[in-house]
Nucleic acid binder design. Sequence first.
DNA 1: ATGAAAGCGCTAACAG
DNA 2: CTGTTAGCGCTTTCAT
Lengths: 384, 384
Amino acid sequence: METCPKCATPTSVIRAGMIRGKVRFYCKSCDYHFTQEHSLKPSPQKQVHTTIKDIAQLMGVSIATVSRALNNKTDISPNTRDAIQKLALELDYNPNLFAKGFQRGETKTIGVVIPNIKRPFFAGVLSGIQEVANDHGYRVMICQSNESYETEVTNIQGLLASHVDGLLISHSKETTRFNQIKNLFDKGLPMVHFDRICTEVETPKIRQEDFEGAYQLVEHLIQQGYQRIAILAGPPELLISQKRKEGYINALEKHGLPLKPEYMAHGDFSKEFALASVDAWQKLPEPPDAIFAIHYLNAVEIIQYSKELGIEIPKQLGIVGFGDEYLAEIIEPALTVFHLFPQKVGEVAASLLFDVISKKHASQQEDVLVQGQLIIRKSSLKKA
Amino acid sequence: METCPKCATPTSVIRAGMIRGKVRFYCKSCDYHFTQEHSLKPSPQKQVHTTIKDIAQLMGVSIATVSRALNNKTDISPNTRDAIQKLALELDYNPNLFAKGFQRGETKTIGVVIPNIKRPFFAGVLSGIQEVANDHGYRVMICQSNESYETEVTNIQGLLASHVDGLLISHSKETTRFNQIKNLFDKGLPMVHFDRICTEVETPKIRQEDFEGAYQLVEHLIQQGYQRIAILAGPPELLISQKRKEGYINALEKHGLPLKPEYMAHGDFSKEFALASVDAWQKLPEPPDAIFAIHYLNAVEIIQYSKELGIEIPKQLGIVGFGDEYLAEIIEPALTVFHLFPQKVGEVAASLLFDVISKKHASQQEDVLVQGQLIIRKSSLKKA
DNA sequence: ATGAAAGCGCTAACAG
DNA sequence: CTGTTAGCGCTTTCAT
């Protein structure tokens, strides 16, 4: 309470509005009006965060008033509002977003689970997600599974404990059981799958042109005159692996080329496996004259290795891959690829998630295909 | 309240302990004991999150008891504890970490501000940060400044609003004003700088061997017999740019080579600038016979461009760079680099931050140097 | 136009 | 051993 500067009676003083950031008081006993600066900066504020309570005390108003002022609500006098906003600025107050979300039961945070940040594809996706999330006023929490199912489960558990408002997932290559995901989906947690999707749950899924890209790559090889095309695929359980293989098979069939099991290798994307496959193929009575590596890094490794072996590219061996990095352009001969657009994938995935979140219903099956692009370079130009 | 199954009087029934997950009741009016299953799963729980309140109601105990049970506190009977934990498991309850941190005034979240996730260096750093944060039970919130000062300020503001418990920062290349950072530091927010550090605030800083690496690279060039070594540096304001240039200058001086201003270019890391510099150097009466590009991508670009121009590497022109990517190994000729260890940088930065956080004091100046490694490849081997 | 009070999920005294 | 209560920062009725 204030003390009247005239009669020194504290009890009879009441606040009587505000004027230019100063609080006006009125002493009932001596009928006297006076103003007073709010006692600003009581101590060099050593706390990291200012709260509305701090502001309220400094201003001599209630926290409710401060809240109203800071949120530009209607029921508030412009004077008070301005004064409070000015003070808030001075104290560089920023609201505790979690306290804010607390009541609404939301955190304005989404969770992302990916196999590995370091892989350029996922880094690109993240970048896209970030951007869209920012635009929507959401923050992003990222977890890496490192391709381990167990870690993935733990990650999701952790994100859940953080009460994320939604989840974006690309599964580890180990993941084959989806009950955790299914469970969350059933509980109504907004969720979107991308890249390494899961068909057992009816979430929206962002796919890329795995089938289409593979088809185009292989068709391009055929048009260049390659006849014995091998595929270096990934783990058979992985959907992208299946899809790309399907595209490969389809292209061969469409063009009347035989399907030879000995030309199809399923590996783990490792360099060792890639080189071993090349070795194995070279020992065949009829070695392949082109290789489609579904993982771009394997394609690059094969180019390097082939050069070591003295195999001429693209003359003796054509090579194409999936996914475009700077690397594909730099290596010699430059690698023909089906370019994916990781950033775009992230953007689309995040947008879709926010759709689901805002509609406040469980995710609806809704597949989106992010288009890719065939980029032809030297590694497959037999005719040139 | 429960109703006595014998006398149907609800008012006189009291809880009388627990047995095997069932609640025991005692009816005072008819002196009758009975047990009852907690009325599990009242509806197929359609809410995403179970709360301790839900559990408390189902078990017929107070929320305090549930809290104690779930946190393995002492003052609780094993029976009750086990029953509660079992139920919590069934309902797959997980605590709202934010509500938990709310009182303690902490969020168990740290913020990271970097220029760009997509750059392999930062992706590596992030990976290291993630790992350490996970071990400490912290979550990570990532923001990209996209090399914009304004975005950086907004990002930090946002992280602050999220009440992160600490901050890891690598500044944008535009950033030259640090009052925001200084302000937060003064308020006691735990903070650690890495890579793009800022000398104006006494935070712990994770540096890399910028000076040392540059020195080693240039010395190596000199030992290979190169005499006219040019440097393609970055923005002069950028500390890593300064440090690497100092290393360059020092090595030249140590070996009695002249410093020629026309051999020193300050650019923005763009490809255009890199190629333009090469052009300019070639037009000199005495063109350089080696180039030290402080950014590895520029080094790669210069190799490509030199080949186009018909300049022989390493014979006519030696090239070395900073930072090692797969690219450096793949390009022909392979690039001599000073290898940085991004993951390590992330790990060290995060560890240091958690030190500061746990000690609950403002960050103390404490510099850590993450060691790098000279990797010699063909692009600089004039003698070979 | 403003204040008082409840409540979001949880923990931590304080009582029994 | 267990229940009651206050409070973290904020919004939101409900009074005034």
